[in-house]
Amino acid sequence: MSNRLAINIPGLSMKNPLMPASGTFGFGDVAGASKFDLNQMGAMVMKTTTPQATTGNPQPQIAQLDDGVLNSVGLTNPGVEAVINDKMFNFHQQYPVLPIVASIGGDTESDYVEVAQKLAQSGLANALELNVSCPNVASGGMSFGVDPKTVESLTSQVKAVTGNVPVYVKLTPNVTDITEIARAAEAGGADGLSLINTVLGLHIDIRTRKAVLGKGMGGFSGHAVKPIAVRMVYQVRQVTNLPIIGMGGVETPADVIEFFLAGADAIAVGTAHFKHWDAIPRIAKGLVPLMDQLGIASLEELRQQR
């Protein structure tokens, strides 16, 4: 991989700027993860972890639409102890040099603090992602992420127990002013930001007259949300110098460059994996030729020119 694609942000020294969005590759144990060498990614983002095991929302949890994917998976996971001792340990054994981002979830603020502390102390996470933006849980998640005071307080509490492990706060688009939430995360001591999470949506089957998801509403993602994501990354970049992991509809090398021009410092790829499990190496392969066409010497240089 050309070093023209190399990116360094807190905790993450990456050969390229691409990582899977949380949940896309589970804990590196989903079927698609065995179909290519994950070392071709810049980093691995784990599925969100909670204190205890949870089974998520009623089926069906995922619906593929013409222009994206609607999901209400919820935070299905085996609990933080199993994630550390089984999932993350085994992944690190298989991919010892690939940076790992562990994602934190919970129902209460104390849940987040507990999970964050355990993940940080495990020594297996290069960075943490504070998921205060999931629209598919009954409590916690997005209910925390829409209130600036809660975001600041929660970020501060998590930072107090995570030592030198950087914390990225994942922002929800389901707010009136995302810059207000970004400022709150920064005030709480965040080392970086991730945005955007899914857009709250609903799709009704006119034949059954029922929602296509078992929970009803869910998070909408895919290429259709990219203009929203790019806009929000741009807005947040105007109010903070924190590193931004941009995401939302990324499918092509051009999408990556567009996010960088808007203010992103790294990129997460999610729904594109429904089309191609190897979406990340596909995108990475096309980046250098596109950069040549556009006269971009390196992604780091592109960041510095902003």
Rank of each mutant, 00 (worst) to 15 (best):
V161L: 08
D37W: 11
K87H: 11
A272N: 00
R231D: 13
Q64W: 03
G26W: 08
V165H: 05
A125W: 04
Q235Y: 02
S22M: 14
L302P: 00
S110K: 06
D37I: 07
Q293T: 12
V236H: 13
P173I: 13
M14G: 02
F220D: 03
K87F: 07
N85E: 14
V83R: 13
E186V: 15
N8M: 01
L130N: 05
F91S: 09
G28I: 13
M14A: 02
I244S: 09
M1K: 05
A160L: 13
K159L: 10
S122Q: 10
N3V: 08
Q121P: 03
I267D: 01
V30C: 15
T162C: 08
Q304V: 00
A254N: 14
T76A: 14
A31Y: 06
N39K: 11
E258G: 06
R207L: 04
V233Q: 04
I7Q: 06
M46G: 06
G214D: 10
G23D: 14
P58Y: 12
D107H: 13
G140C: 12
I296S: 00
V115G: 05
A127M: 12
N241D: 15
I204K: 11
A262I: 02
V212A: 07
D292R: 00
D265S: 08
L195C: 00
N131A: 06
Q52H: 08
L294D: 03
A21T: 06
S133R: 13
L299M: 07
